[in-house]
Write a protein that binds this DNA or RNA. Sequence first.
DNA 1: CATCGATGTTGAG
DNA 2: TCAACCTCGATGG
Length: 330
Amino acid sequence: MPEGHSVHRIARQFNANFPGKPLQVSSPQGRFTAGAEMLDGDSIVEASAVGKHLFIEFERSEHLHVHLGIYGAWDFVGEVTVDATIASANGWMGQTNQRGTLLTEDEIFDAAGENSLTSIGAPRKSRFRFGEATKEMTAEEWPPEPVGQVRVRLQAVDVLADLRGPTTCEVISASEKLAILDRLGPDPVTTPYDAGLEIFLQRAGSKKAPIGQLLMDQNVIAGIGNVYRAEILFRLGINPYTPGNALSKELLTAIWDDWVRLLPEGIETGQMMTMDDLSESEWIAAMANRDDRHWVYHRAGKPCRVCGTPISLAEMQGRKLYWCANCQQQ
DNA sequence: CATCGATGTTGAG
DNA sequence: TCAACCTCGATGG
């Protein structure tokens, strides 16, 4: 589920808490034993994200390449940095204290209590309780037993990360990493604006495939998934079935511009909040319910928020496609 | 309890 | 086009 913003958040979390620390690397599940042995004892130089791909560079110059697919998620446990972005991803965003200001980091720690805090990826609860991992861990409590199917555990002295459910988890070389980056379309966070726009215009504007399909093609533009696809097209009034080569340069540029805007917002907030200028009641509803954060995604049959027309639903390339047939006619 | 479906991608047919 | 991959929350009995 993780679209591009989640993967950038994971890279950020690794960079905040892991680089330079010697790691015990294991595969509790047993399906990544050989790879774990290659990395065991090494330490992380830096993590990076491009599109939905995560790369973790190790001192011995090997790279752990992870793609979460549709189920994957990382759990971070231990001395985990909790900044506003992490807190927001776990539902604390928008909550205020008695002074009416956003919760401070300490208040989030306290408020978290028994709630999960640091699972990033597929929308599911963390397998660990925040308190037990951060408050004066004893030798018996650390490290916590893996819960569920953990493909790989990266464990430092004071923090660990568990990966479950990835579609890809492999050790690759620098050149193999470059080959992946080479074919990926532009990611607004890692590609300069002008260069990214040029590649997108060329790859999307030259194809007769419907734009709804092109936005899901990671070689055309990187990091967009089913939610952002539906939402961006609605925001710009574009029909998902319009061929890429039938769209004006201005509209294609508007798509790139919208992704340039939405991706950093998603990274900062941890949420795919694709509606703007919400009233207070709309904001509260959106924080409580995913479906209230979107214009059309997951709203088949419900009235369009703009014109009231029932939202359409169809299959495109085996994925659910949502759009408003009235608002999206470009 | 069983079954379904999901913010994804690959490869077989 | 479709099954397979892989995990687990939601849904329905």
